[in-house]
């Protein structure tokens, strides 16, 4: 939206990502989840403003601890992107350079990040990219192989934290499953993964924990097993999202998400919520993993 209005795309997002786990950040498109990812990488456009902290490191005692939101562009580009955070992009076809082979792109990234002049095969191997396809150009690759090539590039710097922004958009179900399984393998090898997605099935397949975002706020953070299985989500919005799946009730949440520039006062979900009551006129804080005045606590 044009104009001079300031729009809060993400508000009060607080979460902790533990080493070696996968957190899936889920929500409808336009809920602010990609803005959050860009903020973490310092890739927000020039007219964006941020408040708060995003600490990268193992704890307050960690000397290398870095506030991503306060870091300058030089620090981010020299020590963070690729080295401490690897980005797995939304559309690999657009992320890869079309005029160069996968090998030459891997070689350049290797030299840049590790100083090594070889090791393309090993780097490709880590993302299960077939070595005999290294000399191909991106347009000669299928969607799945292009995704693996992009993943291989993201893994080159051996960044402990991986950030995947909608890595399965536009892929077929089978390919979605293969892609998330490969990402899961990286987590099992010790990488930490923040996956941003609107694909609930993909999130259910890969995540240890789930954060649900609605209208720029995190409304629920839960253990993935409990969230997708029993007892299920506690926030009415999260429950509605799962119920909309064709393998479940296949019933939509009534209404549409509000616009970030025109949020209702109080709980942003209240206008669509079956449990809305007077208390919902105030914004519920995120407490005990859920931001709702009437969280579901049992199977009723």
């Amino acid at each position: 939206m044009r104009g001079d209005r300031a729009i809060a795309a993400v508000t009060d997002a607080t979460f902790r990502l533990h080493r070696g786990e996968c957190l899936a950040l889920i929500g409808e498109s336009g809920c602010g989840k990609s803005v959050l990812a860009s903020a973490l990488l310092g890739l927000l456009p020039g007219n964006a403003r941020t408040e708060g902290h995003a600490w990268l490191g193992s704890g307050e005692a960690d000397e290398a601890r870095l506030d991503l939101l306060a870091a300058d562009e030089r620090t981010l580009s020299r020590t963070v992107r690729g080295r401490r955070i690897g980005l797995i992009p939304q559309s690999p076809a657009a992320h890869l350079t079309p005029v160069r082979t996968v090998r030459s792109q891997l070689r350049e990234t290797l030299r840049e990040l590790t100083g090594r002049r070889d090791g393309e095969e090993a780097a490709a191997e880590r993302a299960a990219f077939p070595a005999d396809h290294l000399d191909r150009h991106p347009h000669q690759l299928s969607g799945g192989l292009a995704q693996r090539a992009a993943t291989a590039l993201a893994l080159v710097g051996d960044a402990p934290l991986l950030l995947a922004d909608e890595p399965t958009t536009g892929l077929d179900r089978e390919l979605v499953d293969r892609t998330v399984d490969e990402l899961r393998r990286q987590v099992d090898r010790g990488h930490t993964l923040l996956m941003i997605t609107h694909d609930l099935a993909a999130a259910g397949r890969i995540a240890d924990r789930v954060a649900v975002m609605y209208a720029g706020r995190i409304v629920e953070i839960a253990d993935a097993e409990a969230f997708f299985g029993e007892p299920g989500p506690r926030h009415p919005y999260a429950r509605g999202l799962l119920d909309a799946l064709p393998e479940r009730a296949f019933t939509p949440i009534p209404g549409m998400p509000p616009e970030l520039g025109d949020l209702p006062a109080g709980c942003a979900f209240a206008p669509r919520c079956p449990r809305a009551a007077d208390a919902c006129a105030t914004v519920p804080p995120l407490a005990d993993g859920v931001a709702c005045h009437h969280p579901r606590s049992d199977r009723a």
Binding site: E28, H198, L200, G240, A244, F250, P252, M256
Partner: peptide
């Protein structure tokens, strides 16, 4: 519905 989230998909199919 390939580009849409689960809730919008269910709504349009309905």
């Amino acid at each position: 519905t390939a580009m849409l989230d689960a809730s919008t998909t269910a709504a349009l199919v309905a």
